[in-house]
Design a protein around this nucleic acid. Structure first.
Lengths: 129, 129
DNA sequence: AAAATAACGCAACATTGTTGCAAATACAAA
DNA sequence: TTTGTATTTGCAACAATGTTGCGTTATTTT
């Protein structure tokens, strides 16, 4: 197993994501970092944070990739880490928030092996009404 | 209201999507068309087909945008057209299929106005097992 | 047939994401 | 503290995807 190191970039990016109530895009992280590190480094740090289960990736209805913290996921079960909670994508402010307490139920179709799910609702968030 | 015309490109693209059991990406459509029209035209035709409710857009877990036909959506209710059915995204063959008969249920959170949903399950499809 | 308008092709550009490689650095061990 | 080494970084270059402007072509209406 490859050892992973703590660097300024990683610390700052994780802090940003953890302190944000909404999921952040790569572009948003980059401009928030204000030139702290290279564009490419951000991609690589995000990749690392995902494999370390510190962060998860969400895609909104338009296909924009965003990153959110995993503070809702208990650390004890990180080895079976999944992100099977719903997300909300606001059509107005384009923000993505985690809806932790909504657990959708559905009938599993035969012959399909389900490993992950992406359940994103979109519309207008409380702030934009 | 802007008038819309039937062109060779539009006819062929719609035929492709309607005859495909899986959702198609822009790249897949382009190579299937074999140079019938320009890359940009495909984007514009797809846009048109979406506003005409002939086609809908799906995004898989990796953020790849695909297009699927709307034959499952009854034409009478096109003015209240939504695509609230689930999709399945195979991790192996990367194909997206519509799971028409799965209607997920969930508790609607307060203060959120929900207009659309994207419910994508991913894993291994019957063909890849 | 002429006028109006929708669709197209092309070129140019923007954004997002990836890869290779040499230089910088974090961190454990001496 | 210094040293050794694997990890991380920056840079440059590239690929894929999507958008826009504009002059030309095609379709529809009158």
């Amino acid at each position: 197993m490859k050892q992973t190191r703590n660097t300024a970039a990683k610390t700052e990016i994780l802090k940003l994501i953890n302190h944000s109530p909404v999921a952040l895009s790569h572009a948003e992280i980059q401009s928030a970092l204000n030139g702290l590190c290279d564009r490419v480094t951000i991609y690589r740090v995000l990749e690392r944070l995902i494999t370390e289960d510190e962060v998860h990736k969400v895609v909104n209805l338009e296909g924009v990739v965003k990153y959110a913290s995993c503070h809702s996921c208990s650390s004890e079960e990180k080895h079976i880490h999944t992100h099977n909670h719903a997300h909300f994508s606001c059509e107005k402010c384009k923000e993505i928030t985690c809806l932790e307490d909504i657990e959708p139920s559905f009938k599993v179709p035969k012959n399909y092996q389900i490993n992950e799910m992406n359940f994103t609702l979109s519309g207008i968030c409380p702030n934009c009404r």
